[in-house]
Amino acid sequence: GAKVLACPLNSCPVAPASRSSQEVWESFSQCFTPAVKEVVEFAKSIPGFQTLSQHDQVMLLKSGTFQVLMVRFCSLFDPKERTVTFLNGQTYSLASLRALGMSSLLDAMFDFSEKLGSLGLEPDEMALFMAVVLVSADRSGIVEVGAVELLQENLIKALRSLITSRRPDDSTLFPKLLLRLPDLRTLNNQHSDKLLAFRIDP
């Protein structure tokens, strides 16, 4: 009867059955809120982001926050050991997380983390990639599409320039990185479904 919200940001992934679903959700919300605020601060630091309309800033963050967090925290997933280290410091094996009901989403997260980790990005490259991720988020609801597209183009150019100047002999890295964008969209959808399922039927 335990209530499970096995997200790496959750300090209490397995809650006793005696706690109400609302209590479990509110406790989890307190865990992910600081991370969401950090993504908003990160967005504000992206050159050009604050020139977008207020509405479009919110729309991009709504669809891109989880994707940025997935990139930021992909180092919590250890594909060699097949473990995930939660922000509460506890490390969980793949098998124990599967037992907690994180099967297909977990596999997709491991797969993504392994692919991204294998590219060996430097911290500044990773930050620029996260900016591209955020501005490449779902366009539904965006009003000033041209302004978002222009910002995206500039960020992609900056990322390509940074990567190709550092690794002039590796022409495959940049396209490999862009291929991770659709992976993140798929993960975002799976993740939303999982959380909404908890909200509907914990």
Binding site: S29, K44, Q50, Q54, V58, K62, S192, L195, R199
Partner: peptide, 27 residues
């Protein structure tokens, strides 16, 4: 549940976190 970010409370957190910045732009 067509808007997961709203239903999960994400939109509210984002709007509040952006608020200071947004108020500055409105002025």
């Amino acid at each position: 549940f067509s808007d997961p970010a709203s239903n999960l409370g994400l939109e509210d957190i984002i709007r509040k976190a952006l608020m200071g910045n947004l108020e500055e732009r409105q002025e």
